[in-house]
Design a protein around this nucleic acid. Sequence first.
DNA 1: CGCATGTTTGACGATACTCAATGTGTGTGG
DNA 2: CCACACACATTGAGTATCGTCAAACATGCG
Lengths: 243, 243
Amino acid sequence: MNAPMSIQSCGNCGLSSMWALTQLEMNRLGGIIKKSSPYQRGESIFRQGDAFSSIYAVRAGMVKTTVVNANGAEQITGFYFPGELLGLNGLHEKAYLGTAMALETVSVCEIPFAKLDELSAMLPELRRQLMCRMSQEIADEQNMMLVLAKTSAEEKLGSFLLRLSHRFKRLGFSDTQFRLTMLRVDIGNYLGLAVETVSRTLTKLQQRSVIKVEGKEVTILDIAGLTFLNSNGEQSAKPIALD
Amino acid sequence: MNAPMSIQSCGNCGLSSMWALTQLEMNRLGGIIKKSSPYQRGESIFRQGDAFSSIYAVRAGMVKTTVVNANGAEQITGFYFPGELLGLNGLHEKAYLGTAMALETVSVCEIPFAKLDELSAMLPELRRQLMCRMSQEIADEQNMMLVLAKTSAEEKLGSFLLRLSHRFKRLGFSDTQFRLTMLRVDIGNYLGLAVETVSRTLTKLQQRSVIKVEGKEVTILDIAGLTFLNSNGEQSAKPIALD
DNA sequence: CGCATGTTTGACGATACTCAATGTGTGTGG
DNA sequence: CCACACACATTGAGTATCGTCAAACATGCG
């Protein structure tokens, strides 16, 4: 089992590389950030319903967020990589809308939101970065909605793998070979597929030499093949436009 | 054909009711908002790839947003009601990530983002409201992801109708009887279902007296029935937790 | 080693997609 | 005003895909 991935630590916290702030701004930001002790696999960083107080930046390791729906079933809402922010959805309800759980050994920085808000009044660049990150979160989720709206299991899994690939690349890791930290059942839950379908589809893609799978290790052999799975031009809504 | 729904107009713009700001703050905000002429069905408010400059608040009518994916197919990413904000996802790329199109006669307010940003440094409550709205957008989208991750067409459509119901209620309209502004094909595209499946599922739910459908008019007869469709406790990921 | 957890594979049936035809409504022009 | 064209919606028949159930197979851990 290899070490969980991490971003370069620097200054108070591993955050400066992603926030693009000046030294002064970083110092101010660093002043309000609390470093927390690492979480072990299965431990939760916050829980659904807890009062919202802070957002969290993942420093190392991968986190999954889940909600319990009306039927009492647990549904995964996201996987979070180092450098990504947790808890942004809790602000408007003043409570966390889901539970964040470590998938492996995880290190996070806690950023008290009230202080971040005050600070953002004084530091324009920090404010813009924060907005920007929230905007990105919105965009990422729309992207995920596109994945989920695909009709075939192959497309869903293909898009899922490509998304992972992009995020590993952004972290400086290989975008063609990586480790699926989460379980097959998690992938299925996240994508709205049965576990067995996940397994079978991975096997099928492997047989076609689009990917190689060895347990949790995945190698992407044919990115184009993965991108254009089942690419029948259908399933699109025609524009009303006259415009 | 009835008039498109709208929020109460007030002051410069119909926004104050949703922003919970003081009169002074509203005046300052009103000073930067541009009212735009109405858009007709099929006209676009902004287009995918356009440079990001403003966010838009829907005042009246319904808007759909779409993206064109790798295969050149159009995919719907959202339907927007009066009082909701468009374009928030464009900030981090400095370009709109999708096209926003009027589904009926639509009126919007344009809010130049650069000015909003400046203003938010001076008005703490405005800043918090803005963050709060972005947080809500994130939460709404996660909610939608839950809908899409459902495995059965019935559940997807049921949840879709319930979401619409809640939003109509928030606007002061009936939450049990409303009009589907969008086409069946749009619903299918949005939910990852074939048009025929949308049609058949609506019929099936009607036969079971859960809803009543007459063309675009929908009446919800049994909210509980709609909420707990196909509620087999399965399809959930078991927590790893020891914790 | 043995148990628990996770993954894969097989067989079967239900669900949803495809193709095709038929309804239904709406607006246009004769 | 009606006939027609067009876009949209529904329904039917056949098929592929995916979910379910069950069993075998791996993997990790005490």
